[in-house]
Amino acid sequence: MAAAAAAGAGPEMVRGQVFDVGPRYTNLSYIGEGAYGMVCSAYDNVNKVRVAIKKISPFEHQTYCQRTLREIKILLRFRHENIIGINDIIRAPTIEQMKDVYIVQDLMETDLYKLLKTQHLSNDHICYFLYQILRGLKYIHSANVLHRDLKPSNLLLNTTCDLKICDFGLARVADPDHDHTGFLTEYVATRWYRAPEIMLNSKGYTKSIDIWSVGCILAEMLSNRPIFPGKHYLDQLNHILGILGSPSQEDLNCIINLKARNYLLSLPHKNKVPWNRLFPNADSKALDLLDKMLTFNPHKRIEVEQALAHPYLEQYYDPSDEPIAEAPFKFDMELDDLPKEKLKELIFEETARFQPGYRS
């Protein structure tokens, strides 16, 4: 834990890192770190609560700039109880001085990944967590956004079992017609939660990839272990087919990539493993919904509104309290091709509203 900075004593240090967030945020305490930044909790002297502050230093890398800009653009436009918001952003007053960006968010005690390492969940908890994931996802999908990296560590939890989806750095506007060349190379989302079509096709992607990830998360809540822990690309596919069985001819016809289709045709026939054999203690309604989410063919996979209306979630289902976005989200430009200098300018502009004396 960093010592509390005395008023006016300059930035606090946390594990050798400068955290320049005073005077409003003090009493910093280390939480963890990701690929390009550290997260601390801090005391907000204005709202009198502890908050989470993520320090991001992305400006050396085009990919990190892209992810940072995506996350900020999306989260500043989203407003939903099951999606983490941005409360404040701290950065230098000029673009030349801006080396880091500090993002202030609600402090959540833990995440689903940490929880599943230590606790076996009751059916009631599984049901409530799944409902909140789908409630947040309904809003995301209504904005025409794909999260693309749903996994237990991106689901934040607090002691009252509130759940918030975080990390929109890989999110995209849904565009089933656009052929994202190089899709697989830039697709760094965790393999275990990846839909089979991501490994088999490169053309376009749809909201059904997020539903697949939610199915993987439900299976993990039922058993405290990942359902498809593939060691590499082909191993991942083999794990999936080992449980779902061989795809039907109709399902194979959806695979545009001939090499991928021929690979699947070359494999020995596998039978589907019954879900109640894998999860003998699970609620039968939970397994019915799991089956509809972990469907090989993305066109037959359940959609988020149908999933919310499934009998497993009937005690929570309330369409009048499951809000959607006001308007579909649009990125003005494809960020993939922009140089990091341009992305830095866009991050600077996007964060201006939090600067003292800002006038829109």
Results as ranks from 00 to 15, higher is better:
Ile243Asp: 01
Leu156Ile: 05
Trp212Tyr: 12
Ser266Ile: 08
Leu150Gln: 14
Glu341Asn: 03
Asp283Val: 13
Val39Arg: 03
Phe19Pro: 13
Tyr102Pro: 04
Glu250Met: 02
Glu334Lys: 14
Leu69His: 02
Leu112Gln: 15
Thr159Ala: 09
Val214Asp: 05
Ala2Gln: 00
Ile302Ala: 12
Val49Trp: 09
Leu76Asn: 01
His232Ser: 00
Glu109Met: 08
Leu121Gly: 07
Leu130Val: 05
Lys272Phe: 04
Glu12Leu: 14
Met293Ile: 15
Gly204Asp: 07
Arg148Met: 13
Tyr187Glu: 06
Ser208Leu: 10
Glu186Lys: 14
Gly169Ser: 11
Asp235Pro: 09
Pro196Met: 13
Tyr64Val: 09
Ile84Thr: 00
His61Glu: 01
Ile198Ala: 02
Asn154Tyr: 15
Gln132His: 15
Ala5Leu: 14
Tyr316Leu: 09
Asp318His: 05
Gly37Val: 15
Gln355Trp: 07
Asp106Gly: 00
Ile165Tyr: 09
Glu314Phe: 01
Ala325Leu: 06
Pro176Ser: 13
Ser202Phe: 11
Arg24Cys: 12
Thr295Trp: 07
Ser284Leu: 12
Pro152Ala: 06
Thr68Pro: 14
Thr118Asp: 05
Arg24Val: 09
Ala6Thr: 13
Met13Lys: 15
Leu163Gly: 01
Ser248Lys: 05
Lys164Pro: 10
Gln97Met: 03
Asn271Gly: 02
Ala7Val: 04
Tyr25His: 09
Leu264Ile: 04
Asn224Leu: 12
Arg77Val: 00
Leu290Ser: 06
Val273Asp: 00
Cys254Lys: 06
Arg77Lys: 05
Ser153Arg: 14
Phe279Leu: 15
Glu314Tyr: 01
Tyr317Ser: 10
Gln17Phe: 07
Thr190Glu: 12
Ile243Asn: 10
Asn87Thr: 02
Lys207Asp: 10
Asp210Met: 12
Leu137Pro: 12
Gln119Ala: 10
Asp336Cys: 02
Ala42Phe: 00
Asn276Thr: 05
Gly32Leu: 06
Asn276Trp: 04
Asn201Lys: 15
Ile95Tyr: 05
Glu81His: 11
Phe168Pro: 01
Ala4Asp: 05
Gly245Tyr: 03
Gln66Gly: 05
His61Ile: 01
Leu146Ala: 08
Val304Trp: 07
Val14Tyr: 09
His141Ile: 04
Asp124His: 09
Lys54Gly: 07
Phe296Thr: 05
Phe19Trp: 10
Leu278Asn: 07
Arg77Glu: 00
Thr160Tyr: 07
Asp177Gly: 04
Asn201Val: 08
Ala6Val: 11
Ala327Met: 07
Asn45Tyr: 14
Lys344Val: 10
Ala174Val: 14
Ala2Thr: 14
Phe78Lys: 10
Ile165Val: 12
Lys54Gln: 04
Glu109His: 07
Leu115Lys: 01
Ile83Gln: 02
Pro23Phe: 00
His310Asn: 15
Ile95His: 05
Phe329His: 01
Tyr64Arg: 10
Leu130Gln: 14
Ile126Phe: 14
Pro311Arg: 05
Leu163Lys: 01
Thr94Ala: 05
Ser223Glu: 13
Ala92Ile: 00
Ser284Asn: 08
Tyr263Glu: 09
Asn123Thr: 05
His125Ile: 10
Thr185Glu: 13
Glu345Val: 14
Pro229Phe: 06
Gln119Asp: 03
Leu267Cys: 04
Ala307Gln: 03
Gln97Glu: 06
Leu244Met: 14
Met293Ala: 07
Leu200Cys: 09
Leu75Gln: 15
Gly215Pro: 13
Lys117Met: 14
Tyr25Phe: 15
Ala9Ile: 03
Phe279Ala: 00
Gly182Ala: 12
Gln62Leu: 14
Arg277Ser: 15
Val304His: 06
Tyr263Ser: 04
Pro311Val: 05
Pro11Ser: 13
Thr295Met: 07
Lys330Tyr: 00
Glu305Trp: 01
Glu250Leu: 03
Cys216Pro: 08
Ala307Arg: 03
Leu76Tyr: 00
Val104Cys: 02
Asp337His: 09
Pro356Val: 00
His147Trp: 08
Glu349Val: 13
Leu218Phe: 14
Ile209Glu: 12
Lys292Gly: 09
Lys117Cys: 13
Gly182His: 13
Gln236Ala: 07
Ala307Leu: 01
Ser266Tyr: 03
Ile90Met: 00
Thr295Tyr: 04
Leu200Pro: 07
His61Pro: 05
Leu155Lys: 01
Glu322His: 00
